[in-house]
């Protein structure tokens, strides 16, 4: 009778008590501990440092495939854009020149990477369970003998490389019953200028052809043109670095100085405008000096260009300066 008067509140009390016990257990006795996390979960500033380290390692070993596999661990939506932006951000924030250069070169290499067949490694886990025993071998196949695909098999890993005539986005795959480790297997595919496909597998890092920022001679000014484009809403300097064969050169250091300031960046960070291209927004009324590389020819007294059409209001234009490394 007495119990009936109290009603079912005891059930609610038990429920609340249970939840409280669960929370106390979860928060005090067994609090969450972050262990065995992956690079994708890192805080953004740690991710920046991780990327910078990937770039520094790439600068040392020249292994683009390994760098790409490491970047994929960070699960960035667009690794090329992310690296490019970080390179520019590092420069803008007066960060480490070494980091900026490494990031810039890696961005350029990533931007250049897929003209021919690319290789995608499906990385399930970094921990190698079975060590593929790569034997160093070089396979050269002329384009005409590649009707479909090349298959290489080594120690249970099947590597299929698409024909150069396949669409650029056709990615060959590596299929393996064993987990792959970036630390243990690399495959570098480099289509040569003669149209042949060279495939090389090795267990040691190989130098990448992406390092095009060669020391060489000092850059000299080849031409200076006025560009009047009404699409531009700010005065600009546009720079193109060329080698002696008139080919664009990415990764060339551009140094722009003005009274009380200096900015350094690299060509090729906007690959959509050309591998040797870089640009800089000028402040009206300021004179700038420009050179490519530490010892390049200095172009002085550059100022914002004003274009005056025959009719209509004047607008800002750009200087296009082409430099060549003889």
């Amino acid at each position: 009778m007495n119990g009936e008067k109290r009603g079912p509140w005891y059930l609610l009390t038990g429920l609340v008590l249970g939840i409280a016990l669960g929370l106390v257990y979860a928060w005090i006795f067994q609090p969450v501990q972050y262990v065995d996390t992956s690079p994708a979960s890192l805080r953004s500033d740690f991710k920046d440092q991780y990327r910078a380290l990937i770039a520094a390692a790439y600068l040392s070993n020249g292994d683009l495939l390994r760098a790409r596999a490491r970047l994929e661990l960070l699960k960035d939506e667009d690794m090329f854009r992310t690296i490019s932006e970080q390179a520019q951000r590092t420069l803008a924030q007066q960060g480490s020149d070494v980091d900026a250069r490494a990031l810039g070169l890696l961005a350029i290499a990533l931007g250049q990477a897929p003209p021919g067949p690319a290789i995608a490694i499906t990385q399930q886990r970094l921990t190698p369970q079975a060590q593929p025993t790569w034997t160093e071998e070089v396979l050269q196949v002329s384009e005409t003998t590649l009707p479909g695909a090349v298959q290489l098999t080594a120690a249970g890993i099947e590597l299929t490389i698409g024909s150069p005539t396949q669409p650029a986005n056709a990615e060959p795959t590596i299929a393996s019953s064993a987990d792959l480790s970036t630390a243990n297997s690399q495959a570098i595919v480099t289509p040569s200028v003669a149209g042949t496909l060279t495939s090389r597998q090795t267990d040691t890092p190989l130098p990448s052809p992406a390092f095009t920022a060669t020391p060489g001679g000092p850059f000299v000014l080849l031409s200076q043109e006025k560009l009047c484009d009404q699409q531009l809403d700010v005065p600009q300097l546009q720079i193109e670095a060329l080698d002696r064969f008139n080919r664009p050169m990415p990764g060339v250091l551009v140094i722009i100085a003005w009274p009380g300031g200096e900015e350094r960046f690299f060509t090729g960070l906007k690959p959509e405008k050309g591998q040797g291209y870089a640009d800089f927004t000028l402040s009206p009324g300021t004179l700038y000096n420009l050179r490519l590389g530490e010892n390049g020819e200095r172009v002085t007294d550059l100022a914002g260009l004003m274009c005056t059409p025959t009719s209509g209001a004047p607008y800002w234009g750009a200087w296009l300066l082409k430099f060549v490394q003889p």
Binding site: Y34, V35, D36, T37, S38, R43, S44, Y50, L73, R125
Partner: peptide, 17 residues
């Protein structure tokens, strides 16, 4: 897991680091 630090990385990632 978000905003973790490198000291929490799994051993294989730490080794690669």
């Amino acid at each position: 897991y978000i905003d973790t630090s490198p000291d929490t990385l799994r051993i294989d990632f730490r080794t690669d680091y």
